[in-house]
Write a protein that binds this DNA or RNA. Sequence first.
DNA 1: ATAGTTATTGTAAAAACTTGCAATAAGGAA
DNA 2: TTCCTTATTGCAAGTTTTTACAATAACTAT
Lengths: 140, 140
Amino acid sequence: MSCATEYVPQLRSLGYRITPQRMAILHVLRHSDKHLSPRDVYKKAKKDFPRLTEPTVYRTLDFLAKNGLARPARTGKGRLQYELAQTDHHHIACRVCGNEVEVDHQLLENLYGRMESTSGYARIDSHVTFFGVCPNCQKA
Amino acid sequence: MSCATEYVPQLRSLGYRITPQRMAILHVLRHSDKHLSPRDVYKKAKKDFPRLTEPTVYRTLDFLAKNGLARPARTGKGRLQYELAQTDHHHIACRVCGNEVEVDHQLLENLYGRMESTSGYARIDSHVTFFGVCPNCQKA
DNA sequence: ATAGTTATTGTAAAAACTTGCAATAAGGAA
DNA sequence: TTCCTTATTGCAAGTTTTTACAATAACTAT
């Protein structure tokens, strides 16, 4: 769990408390390169800290996202997933079959800049799933 | 319920069946200018057709979205909402306080075109909620 | 080290959403 | 109209996500 200590100063400087639950969850995210559902995180983190409960996982992931440590996403089916806030990319999901492909964040950079200046919102960077119809389903 | 009959030819030509459930749900969407949650749609459409059930509402809204008649969206909190596929606009939600503002679809037109050509996906137009930090929460 | 403050957690229950399967009824053919 | 086929629905149960509130345990200051 040691590698999660790298987040301690950041959390503490924001006035938040360091709890074994948060450490266990950060540790799980830290050691996965994929998106994880709250359920995935729960099952893995529970091994480190058996007293962990599911509502705490949901709340902690939300907490991490609000503070920029984790990036939330929605699958094409609307399910929640999280990953550490590192790689910026997005998905397009087929509204017919659900199949997903990645789109590089680069394509969105401009848009985000313009949205920020017109709306006044900052740090627009959320991992988003767009919807379309995939080449396969276009035939049918 | 008469105004929903305007969708009959379109549905029938795609080989789908016309059911009172579908008509009642279309009628509700047709007479609302706001986004409605499945629960909202259920409560309203049930007045027209009391035998209606909630799973049918979820399935029908999904069905309408897949066929381009309804537009699905996710609120800042991730909740499902639907509206008729007419006005194109999007939201930015504050990841701290949840407050939402609208962004015109115009801003996204270009992006969608480029995403379509690089991915091969078609009809990318989904109503999306982006995340950022609103001016208010930027102060705190 | 100890006590006080309050952020964070666990518990329990609700709300939101999904799924499998048998029953129903819409649309096509006789 | 009547029968047939099968898309669509209802039912029942499951999974996912959220919420209220009391109990716990980080941190701070003594």
